[in-house]
Design a protein around this nucleic acid. Structure first.
Length: 432
RNA sequence: GUGCCUAUAGUUUAAUGGUAGAACUCCUCUCUGUGGCAGAGGUAGCGAGAGUUCGAUUCUCUCUAGGCACCCCA
C-alpha cells in the first residue's frame, strides 16, 4: 500500500512496531531476563498497563517531569483519570499492597517485563513506548544486602547480553532526615553563584535543587567540582547503609564508581541510587550516551501505599537501549538454527496427499517447511533453499504410487528414495 | 515543550520547474522430475494539505513522521 493511503494509519510518534526481522533480538533479551530471574529466584508479576493517574502522581512526585509533562493521561467514560504507566515500580507496589503479597514471604523478589509510556521527544535511545525489564525486592528490612543482590542481578543480566565495558555508577541520596540538610548546604553553596548559572539551574534551585548536580551546561560545570558532597551530609544510618552496600559490592568484586552527581528523577527514591552505562563504542564510532539500567531504594513508597512494610529496592533495564547496543556493537546472538526438512510435491495426486502427510511428519516431531501453493518443482526447491532447509522430501506421482518418498540432502544434492513408512526414522537418523 | 536537519518503490538511493531511473528484496517465466547461478519479465514510489506557477516531486508555508541536541530519563 502506498504511503499516501496509509498517511493516517501511521503509528503514533515515538511508538514503533517490532517487526519479524527484529524479533530475534527481543527473544534474546527476554530469554536472558527469564534466565536471570529464575537464577536469582525472582517471580514474575504482570500488572495493568493502565493505572489510576493518582498512583503515579502520588508516588513519583507531582512536580517531577514524568508526571508533570510526560504522562499519557485521559478520562474514561465514567470519569476516572487513567494513565498509561510511565514506569513499573509504582504499579508493582500498588499490586503488592492491594493483594497483600507480603504473605508470599519477605522480602519478596519480583520481576516484570513490558511496555512503558512517556510523552517525550523521541531521540537516540528514547521512545514514547519503550520496554523495561525490572527487578524488585520488596519487604523485609532495609538490609543493604538486598541493594547489593539487586545490583548484582542487573549486572549479571547485562553481562549475559554480552555488553562490554559496563560501568556501575552509584550514590546515596539519603533519607528524609538528612536530605534536607544536604539540600540546604547545596543551596547555600549555589546562592551566591545564582546569577552566573544557566536559566535551567536557576529554576532547579527552586524546584529540585538536587538536580543542580545533573546540569551539563559548561558554565555550570565549573562550579560542580567543588559542590558539597551528599555523602558528607548523610546521617549515620544512611551512611552505615551505604557503606554496607559498597562492602557487598567489593566482596563480589563488582567494580563501581561513586558518582556524587547521580540523583534520580523520581521522588520515591531514597538512599541507594545507581545507573549502568557502557563505554563501548558502536562500529560507526558513536558513543552510547544513555543509561542502560537504573534504579534505587524506595522505602517510603511502601508506606505511601499504606503497606506495613517499609523497605523496597529495585531497578529496571531499558530493553530498546540494550538492543541498540547489542546491534551496534555487532554482538553475535549465537543462534543455532534447528534442523528442518522442506516438503515438496509434484503433481496433483501427490499434492492431494501432501497436507496429511506433512501432518504425520509434524506429529512425529519433525519440523517441516513447505510451499504447497507452488506447483513447480524448481520454485519449491528455490523456497527450500531460501529457507535454509537441510533436507528436501520430494513426493511426486511416482512416489505417491509406490508409497515412497525421496530424501534429498540440500547441502550436497545427494538423494535416495525410501519407503514412506520409514521416512520418519530416516530423517531422524540424519538429524543426529 | 524548544532548537537544528531530513522525507523519492518494502529497503538503499539517482535525477528533474514539464509527474521519475537504478540496485537489493518480492513475484512470474526459462523450469509440474531437481535449488543456490544466470537470463527475461512483472509488482511497487515523489509523506499529507495549501500556496506561487501555464505547469510543482522540485520553490514557499502548515501539518505529520524520522534523526540529532536541550530538558528529562530506561
Amino acid at each position: 500500500m502506498s504511503r499516501s493511503k496509509i498517511q493516517n494509519l501511521q503509528s503514533p510518534k515515538g511508538m514503533h512496531d517490532i517487526l519479524p526481522q527484529e524479533q530475534m533480538w527481543w527473544d534474546k533479551v527476554r530469554k536472558e531476563v527469564d534466565y536471570i530471574a529464575d537464577y536469582y529466584n525472582f517471580s514474575r508479576i504482570d500488572t495493568a498497563i493502565l493505572e489510576r493517574a493518582e498512583i503515579f502522581e502520588k508516588s513519583l512526585g507531582e512536580t517531577t517531569d514524568i508526571v508533570e509533562k510526560q504522562m499519557f493521561v485521559f478520562k474514561s467514560r465514567s470519569g476516572d483519570r487513567l494513565a498509561l504507566r510511565p514506569e513499573g515500580t509504582a504499579s508493582i507496589v500498588r499490586s503488592y499492597v492491594q493483594h497483600g503479597l507480603s504473605h508470599l514471604g519477605q522480602p519478596l523478589k519480583l520481576f516484570y517485563i513490558g511496555p512503558m509510556f512517556r510523552k517525550e521527544q523521541p531521540q537516540s535511545g528514547r521512545f514514547r513506548q519503550f520496554h523495561q525489564a525490572g527487578f524488585e525486592i520488596i519487604g523485609g528490612d532495609d538490609d543493604p544486602v538486598y541493594d547489593a543482590q539487586l545490583i548484582l542481578a542487573i549486572y549479571r543480566l547485562l553481562e549475559r547480553f554480552k555488553i562490554k565495558n559496563l560501568s556501575l555508577h552509584i550514590n546515596s541520596i539519603g533519607c528524609r532526615n538528612c536530605r534536607p540538610v544536604y539540600r540546604k548546604k547545596l543551596l547555600d553553596y549555589y546562592r551566591d553563584l545564582a546569577p552566573k548559572l544557566c536559566k535551567d539551574c536557576r529554576r532547579r534551585m527552586k524546584q529540585n535543587p538536587l538536580r543542580l548536580l545533573d546540569c551539563k551546561n559548561e558554565q555550570c560545570q565549573q562550579y560542580k567540582a567543588s559542590t558539597p558532597m551528599i555523602l558528607d551530609s548523610l546521617c549515620s544510618n544512611c551512611n552505615k547503609h551505604f557503606k554496607g552496600v559498597l562492602e557487598f559490592l567489593e566482596e563480589l568484586k563488582l567494580s563501581y564508581q561513586l558518582d556524587h552527581h547521580l540523583v534520580r528523577g523520581l521522588d520515591y527514591y531514597n538512599r541507594t541510587a545507581f545507573e549502568f552505562f557502557t563505554d563501548s563504542v558502536a562500529e560507526d564510532g558513536t558513543k552510547f550516551d544513555f543509561a542502560l539500567a537504573g534504579g534505587g531504594r524506595y522505602d517510603y513508597l511502601l508506606e505511601l501505599f499504606g503497606s506495613r512494610q517499609s523497605s523496597g529496592v529495585g531497578g529496571a533495564v531499558g530493553m530498546e537501549r540494550v538492543i541498540e547496543v547489542m546491534r551496534k556493537t555487532k554482538i553475535n546472538l549465537g543462534l543455532r538454527s534447528r534442523q528442518k526438512v522442506f516438503f515438496i510435491h509434484i503433481g496433483d495426486v501427490a499434492k492431494k496427499k501432501s497436507l496429511s502427510l506433512i501432518e504425520e511428519l509434524r506429529d512425529a516431531g519433525i519440523p517441516v517447511l513447505e510451499s504447497l501453493g507452488k506447483d513447480s518443482l524448481a520454485a519449491q526447491l528455490r523456497s527450500a533453499n531460501k529457507e535454509n532447509a537441510d533436507y528436501a522430501l520430494i513426493f511426486g506421482q511416482k512416489e505417491a504410487f509406490e508409497d515412497s518418498i525421496i530424501v534429498r540432502d540440500l547441502k550436497n544434492g545427494v538423494q535416495e528414495t525410501v519407503p514412506l513408512r520409514k521416512v520418519v526414522n530416516e530423517v531422524k537418523k540424519r538429524f543426529k
